[in-house]
């Protein structure tokens, strides 16, 4: 009788295709987003996340189409991030079939955007994506932009506290040090964020083996996001859930 820990595959999309690289560089094609979304839905994904990393506005319009087509056939929550700058952008995505949106750089540039979205749609619609890495800020973690390539000198823990007060409903904590390495989630960072954060945390970056998922839950994650291990068939969602059940974690088991 407890809330299940969520497993969330993340689909980075650009120009209508799923792509994946290491530390956001060296992108490889990983398939058709709508097909992959439907496959993950069948396999028991608890939510889906689309992150639009398109370089141009023209490419970005294809994402709206992907959201529409996915929402027509996959009846689980859908989060969309990338390129959201106004509350009207959020409305367009919700109308296309998204349930939540994630924002990142636009909120760093203009924190009031969080209030504007939250006041209009509620904080449950808004996921703050934080790309953090170790650096010399007061907590030891710094917020980065441009996929971890640019430091902001903003302290990650202070930013999360500020954003939660402004009205975000979840934190997507992406470790730029661990992303793409498959060496495990950044557990100390997860524990440090959990200690100051009153909204659910989705851990992201570094999943490579089954044990990594259990460790992140132990460190305080409410949900676990992963991309390449699922896209390239290294493990499946049922593999992860089966493993977590053995470890005594509550997960949602679906019959295919």
């Amino acid at each position: 009788m407890t809330l299940a820990k969520r497993i969330i595959p993340c689909l980075d999309v650009a120009g209508g295709r799923v792509v994946k690289g290491i530390n956001f560089l060296d992108l490889k094609d990983a398939g058709d987003p709508v097909e992959l979304a439907a496959k993950y839905g069948r396999e028991g994904a608890d939510e889906l996340t689309f992150l639009d990393i398109s370089a141009s506005v023209e490419e970005r319009n294809t994402t709206l189409d992907i959201v529409r087509k996915t929402a027509e056939q996959v009846f689980i929550p859908l989060t969309v991030g990338g390129g959201i700058r106004t509350a009207d952008d959020v409305n367009t995505l919700l109308r296309a079939g998204a349930d939540k949106v994630s924002i990142n750089t636009a909120a760093i540039l203009r924190p009031q955007l969080i209030n504007e979205i939250s006041d209009r749609f509620g904080n449950q619609v808004l996921v703050l994506s934080v790309d953090a890495r170790r650096a010399g800020t007061s907590s030891g973690y710094e917020v980065t932009t441009h996929g971890g390539r640019t430091g902001t000198e903003i302290d990650a823990l202070k930013w999360i506290e500020d954003a939660v007060a402004r009205g975000v409903g979840e934190i997507l904590l992406n470790s730029m040090d661990a992303d793409g390495t498959k060496e495990g989630y950044d557990l100390p960072m997860l524990e440090d964020v959990r200690a100051i954060c009153s909204v659910p945390i989705i851990a992201s970056g570094g999943a490579g083996k089954l044990e990594d998922f259990a460790e992140a839950l132990e460190s305080g994650a409410d949900a676990l996001l992963a991309a390449s291990v699922f896209h390239f068939g290294q493990m499946s969602i049922p593999d992860v859930k089966g493993f977590l059940v053995q470890r005594g974690y509550p997960v949602r088991i679906t019959r295919q």
Binding site: D46, G169, E170, V199
Partner: peptide
């Protein structure tokens, strides 16, 4: 301690429910 309540939870189905027929043991979002 952690809000919003987000995710898949079980339901303790009331006696005589017709809404949950066949899905009494399932989780909902």
């Amino acid at each position: 301690p952690i809000l919003p309540h987000i995710g898949w939870n079980t339901v303790s189905v009331g006696e005589g429910s017709q809404l949950f027929t066949g899905v009494e043991e399932e989780r909902f979002y």
